[in-house]
Computed example of a mutant assay.
Amino acid sequence: MTVPDLARTIAAQVAQVPGVVAVSLGGSHARGNARPDLDLGLAYDAASPFDLTALGALCRDLDDSGTASATPPGGWGPWVDGGAWLTVGGQRVDFIYRELGRVEQSVKGALAGRVSLHAQPGHPHGIHGHHYAAELATGVLLHDPEGKLERLKVRLGGYPAPLAQALEGHYGWQPGFWLDGAVGGLKRGDVHDAQGRMYQAVMALVQTLCARERAWILNEKGAVALAGALPGAPHNFAARVNLALAALDVEAVRNLAAEVGWGRPGVHGDSPNVG
């Protein structure tokens, strides 16, 4: 992929902030389906965190309005961590913090095939424990003078087979279960409940398809389109999902689930309550 010049320029400036260990380009640019925004990951060590005052000053200098500010670590929640929203030369630029120790734990979890899902504001599906590993695998390192992220990336070595197997075992059986609950919600006239269960059924299908094809999911944005473009996806998967959710058509999602195929509950957690 071609790294935008603006990303390299800003990364070089951010790298001068004391405590910033590495800078990476993530998001859509790293995956080759670029949207207008640039996502820059700022890696730091919790034992010697970056200089927040210096980073805040840089944000104001870079931002077109001169008003951008940087949150402290943890300011955006336990998994997104923190960062800053800027506009630079009319270009949207997001800084997102990543603590090195947690990135390492995420890599270890991915290699061991551990599946954990965590609530995070702004993410209706939640964030998995292997999320940082996914970012590392799909991102581009712009500044990593000590090779700390590069060593973790090499250690990850792509998409670990144990993680793929664990994700399919965790999600592969769920669509039918969620959809049975959605039917019950519609019978009660509880549209909100039915919508939520249908969403979960679709995300279980997405997780299953992506695990089978070893495709990393970074977040919910574009996840249905990502899954639909994979070789094993049902024909017109994304379009059919959109139509089914808009119409609250449980049977249409059930047909998709049948085409994907699912197994029985495994050993990766309790079944959700279908009500």
Results as ranks from 00 to 15, higher is better:
residue 213 E to S: 12
residue 234 P to H: 05
residue 106 S to I: 10
residue 206 V to S: 07
residue 126 G to D: 03
residue 53 T to E: 15
residue 254 R to K: 13
residue 69 S to M: 06
residue 125 H to T: 03
residue 169 G to D: 14
residue 117 L to V: 12
residue 250 V to Y: 05
residue 79 W to M: 10
residue 200 Q to R: 14
residue 127 I to D: 11
residue 96 I to F: 00
residue 87 T to N: 08
residue 33 N to I: 09
residue 63 D to E: 11
residue 100 L to N: 04
residue 157 G to T: 06
residue 162 P to M: 07
residue 72 P to V: 02
residue 51 D to K: 03
residue 83 G to K: 00
residue 217 I to R: 11
residue 239 A to F: 12
residue 226 L to T: 13
residue 71 T to Q: 14
residue 168 E to L: 04
residue 28 S to D: 04
residue 247 A to R: 14
residue 14 V to G: 03
residue 199 Y to D: 10
residue 195 Q to D: 13
residue 83 G to T: 00
residue 243 L to P: 00
residue 88 V to P: 01
residue 242 N to Y: 06
residue 152 L to G: 04
residue 215 A to G: 05
residue 185 G to Y: 04
residue 25 L to K: 07
residue 112 A to I: 08
residue 23 V to P: 00
residue 51 D to F: 05
residue 32 G to P: 13
residue 121 P to Q: 09
residue 206 V to A: 10
residue 127 I to M: 15
residue 15 A to K: 02
residue 250 V to H: 05
residue 253 V to D: 00
residue 264 R to V: 13
residue 201 A to S: 03
residue 120 Q to P: 06
residue 58 L to E: 01
residue 146 E to P: 00
residue 93 V to S: 00
residue 1 M to I: 01
residue 34 A to E: 14
residue 44 Y to R: 04
residue 80 V to K: 04
residue 9 T to Q: 14
residue 133 A to W: 07
residue 256 L to H: 03
residue 248 L to E: 08
residue 68 A to V: 09
residue 43 A to C: 12
residue 220 E to N: 08
residue 85 W to I: 08
residue 221 K to S: 06
residue 197 R to W: 06
residue 266 G to Q: 14
residue 64 D to Y: 02
residue 251 E to G: 04
residue 160 P to N: 05
residue 36 P to I: 00
residue 108 K to Q: 09
residue 138 T to V: 02
residue 229 A to G: 12
residue 153 K to I: 08
residue 69 S to T: 15
residue 212 R to Y: 12
residue 166 A to E: 11
residue 155 R to K: 15
residue 38 L to T: 11
residue 244 A to S: 13
residue 41 G to R: 14
residue 171 Y to D: 13
residue 214 R to C: 12
residue 161 A to C: 00
residue 214 R to V: 06
residue 161 A to G: 02
residue 192 H to L: 15
residue 204 A to M: 15
residue 241 V to I: 13
residue 244 A to I: 08
residue 167 L to D: 02
residue 228 G to D: 07
residue 162 P to C: 07
residue 55 L to E: 09
residue 127 I to N: 10
residue 45 D to C: 10
residue 66 G to Q: 12
residue 168 E to R: 11
residue 139 G to N: 12
residue 84 A to S: 15
residue 46 A to K: 13
residue 87 T to K: 01
residue 181 G to Q: 00
residue 237 F to P: 00
residue 271 S to N: 11
residue 130 H to F: 14
residue 120 Q to K: 11
residue 190 D to S: 12
residue 54 A to V: 14
residue 131 H to I: 01
residue 153 K to N: 10
residue 222 G to L: 06
residue 245 L to R: 08
residue 60 R to W: 09
residue 158 G to L: 06
residue 155 R to A: 10
residue 229 A to K: 08
residue 241 V to K: 05
residue 174 Q to P: 01
residue 38 L to A: 13
residue 170 H to G: 10
residue 64 D to M: 05
residue 138 T to R: 05
residue 14 V to C: 13
residue 12 A to T: 02
residue 187 K to M: 15
residue 4 P to C: 02
residue 85 W to Q: 09
residue 106 S to Y: 11
residue 90 G to D: 02
residue 145 P to Y: 04
residue 92 R to M: 03
residue 172 G to K: 02
residue 180 D to G: 06
residue 242 N to M: 07
residue 100 L to M: 07
